[in-house]
Write a protein that binds this DNA or RNA. Sequence first.
DNA 1: GTTCTAGAAC
DNA 2: GTTCTAGAAC
Length: 335
Amino acid sequence: MIGCWLVSKDGKHEPIRLPHTETVLIGRGPETLITDRKCSRNQVQLKADCNKGYVKVKQIGTNPTSIDSEDIGNEQEMKLKPGQTLYIVNNLYPYFIEFCESQEPDIKMKNSEKSSLKRASVNSLNGSMETSKKSAKKESNIFPSSTSHLTIMAKTHWNQGLKVSMQDPTMQVFKDDRVVVIKDKYPKARYHWLVLPWESIATLKVLRTEHLDLLQHMHATGENIVKEHANIKLTSFRFGYHAIPSMSHVHLHVISQDFDSSCLKNKKHWNSFTTEYFLESQDVIEMVKNHGRVTVKDDISELLKSPLRCHICKQQQSTVPQLKEHLKKHWPSKQ
DNA sequence: GTTCTAGAAC
DNA sequence: GTTCTAGAAC
C-alpha cells in the first residue's frame, strides 16, 4: 500500500505520515518543533491523495504559507507535488512530500548525525547525503523503524530525473560555473539539448529580475552549443521553456525543428513544442524584464490537446503517424 | 517524464 | 482484423 510522508528538509524531526485522504493539521507544536509565534498551531491543513500523487494544502493561519515561492493565501488551497517545497510560514520551515509503497518510506535525511545507525551513503543533488534508520516509534503517524534490510536507497521520484542527470558527468555536454548542458534523454528531434542552471530553481514561477543575467547566459550557452555543431547549418532551432514542465528544475530546451525522433510519440509531445505552451526563451527574458516575473495562463495545458498541426505549413494532421510522415516533406534534402 | 494497455477508431 | 489514443501506473 502506498503511503505519503511529510518530510522536514532540515531534518529537524522525523517524517510525519499523511494517511490517504485524511485531513492532517500542522503548525506550531511538538510534532514539528516549530516555536515561531508567527506560525499558528493549526497553520496548514494537509490532505494526501496517494492515487493522484499530491497533497492538498490549505492555509489556515493568517501568515503566509507557500509552495516554492507562491503564497497559498488565507483559507486558500494549493496542490503540493513531489519535488516542490512547502514553507509552513514566512518562507520558513521547508518540507517536501514523499510517496512510497510500503510502511517504510525511503527518506533522505540531511542530518544523519542525529541518527543512531548510519546507513549507506547515496549520491544526491547536494552531494553526499545519508539515509538513516530512525529509532522505533509506536505511534502510527511517526516514521516507523526499518526491520530487515541494511541499506535503504532513497527512491527518487521520476520528476527529479533532471537533477540526477545534470550531475552525471557522462551526461554533460558542456558546463561552466553557472550552467550545465545535457542531451535530452528522450530527444524529440535530431538535436535536443537542455540547458540547466546549477542554482536550484524549481519552476518558472520563482524567476525574478535577479535571474535575468542567468536566463541570458542560458540562452547564450544554447546558441554556443548549436554553433559548435557546424554540420547542422540547414537545421533551424528554437529555444524555449515548457509552460508547465513535468520535470522539476528549470530547463531551457534547445531543439532542432525537424522533430525527427522515435521518442516523439504523442499529441502532448508535439503540442508542447509547437504551440504557445512552448515559451520562447527571449519572451521569457522580456517578461521578467518588463514584469519582474513569468506568468502563465491558467488553462495553458489545454493547448496540449490541440489538433495536430504542422509547425511549418500549418496543415492539420489526423494522427501522430500521419504527422510524422508529413514532416518529412519539410526536411532539407541532403546534397 | 515513460510505459503499458483497454478500448476507440478505422 | 490492426492502428492509434488516452489515461492509469510507474
